[in-house]
Design a binder for these strands. Structure first.
Length: 668
DNA sequence: CGGCAAATACTG
DNA sequence: CAGTAT
DNA sequence: GCCG
């Protein structure tokens, strides 16, 4: 079969694309120069690339940034890549008692002048609420290194000591829920206790139960209170510890440390003067730290600190950060043979056997071996791969088998099964997943050809029919040039809506600098999100056949048209090269409209790679954050209150205490 | 053993 | 709601 | 299927 290389393309690239042979690995970067038809010019592509190259953040500043930046032709101005790399934004740890002073990077002196200018320029930008930054802000920005990151800290700080002194014990919660609540609690300065011992101040439960009674009995202190989980979440939302009587349970006593916190009320009400708030919060926080260090809560915090230190140490192990094993030291792919066979297992488990978790394991093993920097020759070489180091692991055995015999019996047996064969092929159709594939097979359709020949009208959904129609074409990879071209068409269409006001970003592997992509993915920023749908419809009618624009007809089919999302099919009107008389290939296109607020995280998300994202989300999670396409949140929820403001991707990295990684380096 | 990312949009 | 996709 |  054709499942040779994993397609580490954009994000969650789906089965239809998964099996595509990837020839994009590490090509040299080509400079673009195309004599574009219609109104599209090479400089448009160039602009796209710069737009997407990551270092700039605010769109309004975009023009300025470009003017300042050295005008390199082609992509990825290297001066951006090294920016900030030494700067260790230790930041975040604030919730864990790391010195706040260490957070504000002392290394500002070394900041690249170009970036400093950009930052300065940003201060003049209109922020997303439409309010202009005051002169004060601008001045302050001169002293402080990064205002946006500072803002984000403020969010975290405001609540950092709300729950100080609270040591909670959870009764009758799922592990997951308890973890989530505990995390929120910790971020607010509280702590979690594994056992119902005397250090516990709060017992969290949803209802009366024998377990609850038992827990309360085993805690030998008068002031222990019962609370509901809502008490925690609500306290967070309101930025103040609610009175414990607000819970369903009658409290035995109130806990003084919570009841009398004068500043809490202020925190809840003084939304007016945000600057003063930030200052005060910072001061409070310093106090809180001092108390923590000197008071009897030592044990609580040392454990947290230890964890945090451990996390810091493991930083380079995250593939969203540069580190020895992430360096592309080896341009050659290793262990291709073994990896391909394992990937074959993965595909079968996913598409035919419908076991995504086994599939993931096989895929992960394949990918790990592929990115190893040496060729494995004996089974013992597996010891360095975390996944494969256990001696009795099944995949490890399979690796051994492949090394010895050159093949994998289990895979061959699976592939010999007609149902497996059929499901693999059918899953290659866009819109057909494992379940549909199996049901089609059960109905007697085993191949794409079968379906084309004799599928009744009502067998497939409209989207599946389109997938079937373009089955072969969708498997083709798209040259970078063409991705840029089509994306540019989308951008131009968008900018006939509001003249040059709408910013578009061609994301996915294109933005990571790849020479080919699996599809075309365009993010459209819509500042007035109430117009999002109107904008999207405008773009579509500009691009669909029968219109009057020079781009009319580029979109050939729709797969899905949503309020803020479009998925469809596009093809060039005529070939990019004049001497090419083959008809243009149909391509998958996604257009998504985002509001300015969530644009940075959306960019991050849709730029991928998949692995990079997963790693970064995991890191965020360990830090107590929640990283989504819609935003970065300071706790595990998506409450707007906890939103960490970010003007650009860099701010997200900053807030997470990670070094900025430019898109081209996210191909992990 | 349970969990493995998670949220969301759309279709039928 | 299940299935697919992002 | 692996990991905690």
């Amino acid at each position: 079969m054709d499942a040779l290389h994993a397609d580490e393309d954009t994000l969650a690239r789906r089965r239809a694309r998964r099996r595509r042979r990837s020839s994009e690995a590490d090509e040299a970067t080509a400079t673009l120069d195309l004599g574009a038809p219609m109104t599209l010019r090479a400089r448009d592509l160039d602009r796209f690339e710069r737009t997407s190259s990551g270092a700039t953040t605010s769109n309004e500043c975009h023009a300025k940034s470009r003017r300042i930046a050295p005008s390199t032709s082609g992509r990825s101005p290297s001066e951006m890549n090294t920016l900030d790399l030494e700067r260790n934004a230790a930041t975040f740890a604030n919730a864990f008692g790391v010195d706040a002073a260490a957070v504000v990077s002392p290394g500002n002196a070394g900041v690249d002048p170009y970036r400093a200018i950009v930052r300065c320029a940003e201060k003049f930008c209109i922020d997303r609420d439409g309010a202009e930054h005051s002169i004060e802000d601008v001045e302050r920005a001169g002293e402080e290194e990064d205002e946006a990151a500072d803002d984000s800290r403020a969010v975290a700080l405001t609540s950092a000591s709300l729950m100080e002194g609270v040591r909670a014990f959870f009764v009758n919660f799922t592990k997951k829920r308890a973890e989530a609540l505990g995390n929120a609690l910790i971020r607010m300065g509280g702590s979690v206790c594994e056992r119902a011992d005397d250090s516990v101040t709060h017992v969290v439960a949803c209802e009366e139960s024998s377990a609850l009674t038992k827990a309360l009995e085993s805690i030998d202190r008068e002031d222990v209170v019962k609370i509901t989980p809502e008490w925690i979440t609500e306290s967070y939302k309101q930025r103040r510890p609610l009175p414990v009587s607000a819970t369903n349970f009658e409290p035995r006593t109130r806990v003084a440390v919570i009841a009398d916190r004068p500043h809490s009320q202020e925190a809840a009400t003084s939304s007016g003067d945000s600057k003063a708030l930030a200052v005060r919060v910072r001061k409070e926080r310093e106090n809180a730290l001092a108390i923590r260090r000197s008071s009897g809560f030592g044990t609580i915090w040392t454990s947290d600190l230890a964890d945090n230190e451990k996390l810091e140490k493991s930083r380079s192990k995250f593939s969203c950060q540069p580190g020895e094993h992430n360096e592309k030291a080896m341009p050659i792919e290793c262990n291709t043979k073994v990896a391909d066979l394992l990937k074959g297992m993965a595909d079968i488990y996913e598409d035919a056997l419908r076991d995504q978790y086994r599939a993931k394991q096989y895929a992960a093993a394949a990918s790990a071996l592929r990115s190893l920097n040496f060729e494995i020759t004996s089974i013992n070489d597996c010891d360095v791969v975390p996944m494969l180091k256990k001696k009795d692991g099944k995949i490890r055995k399979y690796v051994g088998e492949i090394l010895n015999t050159g093949k994998l019996k289990a895979l061959e047996e699976l592939r010999a099964r007609p149902d497996v064969k059929a499901c693999l092929e059918l899953c290659g159709i866009h819109g057909v997943g494992p379940v549909t594939a199996r049901s089609l097979f059960a109905k007697g359709y085993a191949t794409v050809a079968d379906l084309r020949a004799r599928a009744p009208e009502n067998l497939l959904t409209p989207a599946q029919k389109i997938g079937l129609k373009y089955y072969e074409e969708f498997k083709e990879r798209i040259p970078r040039e063409e991705v840029g071209f089509i994306a540019t068409a989308v951008r131009e269409a968008a900018n006939t809506f509001q003249k040059d006001e709408v910013h578009c970003y061609c994301v996915g592997s294109f933005r990571r600098g790849k020479e080919t992509s699996g599809d075309i993915d365009v993010l459209v920023e819509c500042r007035d999100y109430s117009l999002a749908n109107e904008l999207l419809m405008h773009i579509l009618s500009d691009l669909r056949p029968g219109g009057t624009s020079p781009r009319s007809g580029i979109l050939t089919d729709d797969l899905l048209v949503g309020d803020h999302t479009y998925m469809g099919v596009a093809a060039l009107l005529k070939p990019l090269k004049d001497d090419d008389d083959k008809p243009p290939i149909h391509r998958r296109v996604d257009i998504k409209v985002y509001d300015s607020e969530s644009l940075p995280t959306a960019l991050l998300y849709f730029t991928g790679s998949d692995k990079f994202n997963r790693s970064m989300r995991l890191w965020a999670k360990k830090k107590g954050f929640n990283l989504q396409d819609k935003g970065l949140f300071a706790d595990r929820s998506q409450a707007q209150a906890s939103r960490v403001r970010a003007k650009g991707e860099e701010d997200v990295f900053d807030a997470l205490g990670l070094d900025y990684v430019p898109p081209e380096k996210r191909n992990v």
